Amino acid sequence: MRIDLDQDRCVASGQCVLAAPDAFDQREEDGIAVLLVEEPPAGAEEDVRQAATVCPALAIRLAE
């Protein structure tokens, strides 16, 4: 799985960080999500899928 994060669409809700903290973080200055890894660590795939599902801005896309 490959993760694509569109920071221009991000609304800084932080839902991705709560769902998949191994893959996402937020910038301190504005809360915009940042991608920590392009491929989720072993065992974190379901968390990343959940992050994509709960993102209110649909800023996370996954390629299997």
Results as ranks from 00 to 15, higher is better:
D6G: 06
D6K: 04
Q7M: 03
R9F: 00
R9H: 00
C10T: 05
C10R: 00
A12W: 04
A12S: 09
S13Q: 07
G14I: 01
G14V: 02
Q15S: 12
Q15G: 15
C16D: 10
C16L: 11
C16P: 05
V17F: 03
V17D: 06
L18K: 04
L18R: 09
L18C: 01
L18A: 12
L18T: 10
A19I: 02
F24H: 07
F24A: 04
F24D: 00
D25F: 06
Q26S: 14
R27C: 06
E28D: 11
E29N: 13
D30Y: 14
G31T: 14
I32Q: 10
I32V: 15
I32A: 08
A33C: 11
V34W: 13
V34I: 15
L35N: 05
L35T: 03
V37L: 11
V37R: 14
E38A: 09
E38K: 15
E38Y: 07
E39C: 14
E39M: 07
P40H: 10
P40F: 08
P41D: 11
P41V: 11
P41T: 12
A42T: 13
A42D: 12
A42F: 08
G43F: 03
E45L: 15
E45V: 12
E46I: 11
D47K: 15
V48L: 05
V48P: 08
V48H: 11
R49D: 08
R49L: 13
A51N: 07
A51C: 13
A51G: 05
A52I: 09
A52P: 10
A52H: 05
V54Y: 01
L58D: 13
A59Q: 03
A59E: 02
R61Q: 10
R61I: 03
L62H: 06
A63N: 08
A63D: 14
A63S: 11
A63K: 11
A63W: 06
A63F: 12
